[in-house]
Amino acid sequence: MDSNPQSPNPQFPEPSKPGARDGESGREQDHRLVRLAKTGDELAFAELVRRHERGAWRVARRLVPSDEDARDLVQDAFLRVFVNLEGFDFKYAFSSWLLRIVNNLAIDSLRKRRTAFSISGDDEDDPEPGLMDPKALSPSAAMEQTETAAEVQACLETLAPHFQSALVLRELEGLGCMEIAEIVDATHVTVRWRLHRGRKLFQEEWERRARIKQTRAAEPGGGANKDAARFVDPAEQGPEPEPRT
């Protein structure tokens, strides 16, 4: 059986983003595919994978440090989806459910990574600086963009995982607080607080690094900056607020 999910199936419209108000048909098609997949229809599940792999990949890749980790995470997420199809709640969009699984797996992965980071005190997996395609730019511009990407990623990695996931879902997927709340299983107030706190912490870290760079540039002969990669304990980043209604 040729169940290659790369070729779009004209029978099913493309999915809408989670929470999109004009995407009911895509959502219903997803639900139809879920029902078919529950009966063991492999093609239906392959179609679900094809429709949602890109979104899942984008989120996963922003939260874990390498393509390989993101691929494994997304594949694991789809396996979990298949295993738990019986428990799918048709009140929700399939994409929300999938992103919740991806998000939970990514947060687990980030927590393990942060634990390893704090124990070793050394980041062995350097952030991949090639996220922004340097080939399309002049050498100096490419180098600058690569450095900026590495700096941003390093700043992002100092944030606690739940801040990272809220920022990624908001900035990358353009989701609102209610949609993110559905995915991360929190109240929209908590999501707003995570966005607020995450952006503030990111800004502080970004500015701290900028000050360090300026200081180094001002020093004669430069100098090694041992303080550049700073591990920030999640406890420093503040407790979750009490949910308000």
Partner: peptide, 10 residues
């Protein structure tokens, strides 16, 4: 650019 590196998932 990240999406250019998306591997085959299925």
């Amino acid at each position: 650019i990240v999406e250019l590196h998306q591997p085959e998932i299925w």
